[in-house]
């Protein structure tokens, strides 16, 4: 792999994961929804894209379809958040993520099962397009968080009681937050599938969820700029160490394991010593006239 191609790959994969991390940050960082199954949006977005393209749709209609499906899935899954709090919901989402992957693995008619499905797409300047989408996702979350809607989400994050006392329908806000998070996660998944041109259920192990968690936690939850930094840091490390095996007397398999040990440690140490992340969220003070 030449340097240019490597750089190209690195920038696109980082940009895609940045969108994915933004979608998690929107749910966990901004709305306080502990989603341990974030990969299901990535999975459903990727598969919708793949199925739509093999059905003969063009790139943009397929992308739109993927976003719509993921937004709807997010809306549906939000119903599970109605009567349960953080911990229980975390376990449920982890289970739902695995159920989704098992469905794609076992239903061969749907998208090839374990053999996966390939996407025949060729988009000119695809890398640039991905970067534009990342910028758009960033601006979207920023705009939402600057709006009154965003402020209510932050209130809900700190516990349902305050928002309820202000007469806000907490559940309806959670539904909207999950829908937006789903659309962003679906965007990441669809772009991932279009960039990789071939996906199978092995691309959507829960480990993907854990990697985006590392990005959000290390970067700084509740801060979109921090999340982008987190995505870059984790990806530099993740992609960079792939080449370390050429220089170190260590097998590829063992290196892959050590790489994950390091990511796990990064999550742990950040939570233990710097739970606000590298770029902490700025606290805003609103003056009431």
């Amino acid at each position: 792999m030449g340097l240019y191609h490597f750089f190209n790959y690195f920038v696109t994969i980082t940009a895609i994961y940045a969108i994915f991390a933004l979608s998690l940050n929107f749910q966990y960082g901004h709305a306080g929804l502990v989603n341990f199954g974030q990969v299901f949006f990535f999975c459903i977005g990727g598969y919708t894209m793949a199925i739509a393209i093999s059905a003969g749709l063009h790139f943009f209609p397929s992308l739109f379809l993927a976003l719509a499906v993921c937004g709807f899935v997010g809306f549906l899954i939000s119903y599970t958040a109605r009567n349960m709090g953080g911990t229980y919901w975390g376990i449920v989402t982890l289970a739902v993520g695995e159920i989704v992957r098992l469905v794609f693995l076992n239903e061969n008619w749907l998208a090839g099962g374990a053999n996966g499905i390939s996407l025949k797409v060729a988009i000119p300047y695809f890398e640039v397009l991905i970067l534009i989408f990342t910028a758009m996702a960033f601006l979207l979350t920023r705009t939402i968080m600057e709006s009154p809607f965003g402020r209510v989400l932050k209130t809900i994050r700190e516990g349902d009681d305050l928002a309820l006392s202000l007469g806000k329908d907490v559940f309806s806000f959670k539904k909207k937050a999950m829908t937006v998070g789903g659309i962003l996660g679906g965007l990441a998944g669809a772009l991932f599938a279009a960039q990789k041109k071939f996906i199978n259920p092995e691309d959507f192990f829960p480990i993907e969820t854990f990697i985006v968690w590392a990005m959000v936690v290390v970067g700084g939850k509740g801060n979109d700029r921090g999340t982008l930094w987190g995505a870059i840091i984790i990806q530099v490390f993740y992609v960079g160490t792939r080449f370390a095996k050429d220089y170190l007397p260590i097998s590829g398999n063992r290196l892959a394991a050590l790489r994950m040990v390091f990511i796990g440690l990064l999550i742990m140490l950040t939570m233990m010593y710097r739970s606000k992340g590298l770029v902490p969220e700025k606290r805003k003070v609103y003056k009431v006239e």
Partner: peptide, 15 residues
């Protein structure tokens, strides 16, 4: 409950 839970997720990867 969230901070220790996320930490335990990190610990599970490490182990």
């Amino acid at each position: 409950d969230v901070i220790p839970m996320v930490t335990s997720l990190g610990l599970s990867i490490v182990m």
